[in-house]
Amino acid sequence: MIYELRQYTLWPGKREVLVELFDREFVEGQEATGMRIDGQFRDEDRPDRFVWVRSFPDMARRAASLQAFYGGPVWQAHRDAANATMIDSDNVLLLRPAGPVWELPTERRPQETDSLLTASIAYLPEPVTQDFRDFFAAEVAPITPVIASFETEYAENTFPALPVRTGEHVFVWFTRDEAPPAVPALEGWLAKPLESLRLSPTARSLLR
């Protein structure tokens, strides 16, 4: 599976406009082309940030699904309204699983909850090594409820109309707690400080 972690910077006051539009129009519209919308979130620390995750069976089908959606009627009908909310939509990490990944419900039942997830992004000086995976399994995973972990996917972007970040090496994990415990030994592995995203699911997010 291939995953995208997408962070959008929005114009002030426009996040709820995009959340409503996304949940109403862009979930089934994208999934009809063969991708899955795993989760969509409000960033609790950045009021003008919208974060979401989608996934694809592989890079070839990613290209086909994106072409079908962005060339199709749903996006064409609503793209102007969506784009009007956004300052930047290019903050995108292309990822592959680095271990077990979340199990999602089979039905999307709209619900408002006060659940909170944290996405932690570790920036490494080189591609993820087995030594780092072993360190993570031994030192990080046992003290925080990790529900999924990912690392950089280095395959060529198969849909260049939508840029992804390149030249970086990341390890990303999601937890269902507000503030995962600090792991001082982790700092020795990092190229720059750990990035943490506190995420509250929208009403139609599968991941919550």
Rank of each mutant, 00 (worst) to 15 (best):
residue 90 D to I: 09
residue 85 T to V: 00
residue 41 F to A: 01
residue 168 E to W: 15
residue 135 F to C: 00
residue 107 E to N: 09
residue 62 R to W: 09
residue 65 S to A: 13
residue 107 E to S: 09
residue 9 T to W: 10
residue 82 A to T: 00
residue 36 R to E: 08
residue 35 M to G: 05
residue 123 Y to P: 01
residue 42 R to S: 15
residue 113 T to A: 03
residue 150 F to K: 04
residue 93 L to G: 05
residue 40 Q to S: 15
residue 92 V to N: 05
residue 33 T to W: 13
residue 53 V to W: 11
residue 172 V to Q: 06
residue 95 L to D: 07
residue 30 Q to S: 02
residue 27 V to I: 15
residue 114 D to V: 14
residue 185 A to I: 03
residue 200 S to G: 15
residue 153 E to T: 11
residue 107 E to I: 10
residue 154 Y to G: 02
residue 202 T to N: 01
residue 33 T to I: 02
residue 33 T to S: 04
residue 193 P to Y: 01
residue 145 P to G: 02
residue 168 E to T: 10
residue 137 A to I: 03
residue 183 V to M: 04
residue 1 M to K: 09
residue 120 S to M: 06
residue 110 P to K: 08
residue 11 W to I: 13
residue 130 Q to D: 15
residue 88 D to N: 12
residue 144 T to P: 01
residue 74 V to E: 08
residue 207 L to H: 06
residue 134 D to V: 15
residue 87 I to M: 07
residue 153 E to Q: 14
residue 2 I to F: 12
residue 138 A to M: 07
residue 75 W to S: 06
residue 89 S to P: 01
residue 193 P to C: 04
residue 172 V to G: 06
residue 121 I to L: 13
residue 168 E to A: 12
residue 204 R to P: 00
residue 14 K to Q: 13
residue 14 K to T: 12
residue 11 W to C: 10
residue 78 H to M: 01
residue 70 Y to P: 09
residue 47 P to R: 08
residue 204 R to E: 02
residue 163 P to T: 13
residue 112 E to S: 11
residue 108 R to C: 14
residue 56 F to V: 07
residue 126 E to L: 03
residue 22 F to M: 05
residue 152 T to C: 14
residue 170 V to P: 10
residue 92 V to S: 05
residue 128 V to Y: 11
residue 10 L to H: 09
residue 69 F to Q: 02
residue 55 S to G: 03
residue 127 P to Q: 03
residue 25 E to Q: 15
residue 76 Q to P: 13
residue 170 V to A: 10
residue 207 L to N: 07
residue 119 A to L: 01
residue 202 T to Y: 05
residue 166 T to W: 11
residue 24 R to H: 14
residue 34 G to L: 01
residue 107 E to V: 10
residue 25 E to T: 14
residue 95 L to N: 05
residue 156 E to K: 12
residue 114 D to P: 13
residue 46 R to M: 02
residue 62 R to A: 01
residue 2 I to H: 11
residue 131 D to T: 03
residue 206 L to I: 07
residue 117 L to C: 05
residue 48 D to L: 02
residue 88 D to F: 15
residue 26 F to K: 11
